[in-house]
Amino acid sequence: MSNQIQKHRKKLSIGSIVVYSFLCIASILSLFPFYWMFVMATRPSAAYNTIPPTLTPGNMLVENFNKVLNQIDFFGGMWNSFVLCVVVTIVVLFISSLAGFAFAKFKFPGKNILFVAILVTMIIPPQLGLIPQYFLISKAGLLDTLAGVMILSFLNPLGIFLMRQYISGAVPDELIEAAKLDGCSNFRIYWRIVLPIILPAFATLGIIVFTAVWGEFLWQFTVLRDPDSYTIQVALAQLSNTNNIDFGMILSGVFWATVPLLIIFLLFNRLFISSITEGSVKS
């Protein structure tokens, strides 16, 4: 009997060793490019040509970053991306929650058809309208402006969907009825009653929108041609576009552009992971 238990335990431990080693390898492979990016950001470009490869950090952290600053407007790009993401996030939260509120709590003819129509817009590939969109933005004089980039990102069908789901569940009808009897206007109900209740959903949707807009490239690359208007993504892409490629400099730029987002992620990782799962699973 005791022999059997021992056998069982031994079997388990071999299985768990396999599991742990598989997960450790996966973690190392996930983390290694980050670490290596840091190493290269602290080394001269020549470190790249050594065999075996350099795997420990050097002391060129500041020099490499200075080279980045000579090549692109790094802080300008970060600022532009930041402004872009903040404005888009706020506008999307507002548009989505307002529409989600309407779909969840009001009766009006054609409601279901309109809701389905919003969901259908999700499957249109963004490249389909790319060229006319470019000319529209150009006609409106919005080329090389953040406003030109923003306006496309204001369209977020997923946001309306998530907000409708959340509001139908989290905001009781009685509360709205009671407010109406007290003579509250519908917008006041939205502002004073619905908004405070759905703040957790704002965190979820906010994270989804912010990270998506931060990393988006095709549209930003199309609209922003003037270096002063570059977001960080477009600016970074220029680093590999020069003839004289300096690997230390490239990775220094990528490193400093990635670090802020990573720090925010590591601080709020639970919220991040649950938000992004929720966003895709619910749809």
Partner: peptide, 15 residues
């Protein structure tokens, strides 16, 4: 493990 395996998603496509 969850955090480390998820981390690459946070880097932008350009990065």
């Amino acid at each position: 493990f969850r955090v480390t395996i998820f981390m690459p998603y946070l880097t932008s496509m350009v990065a």
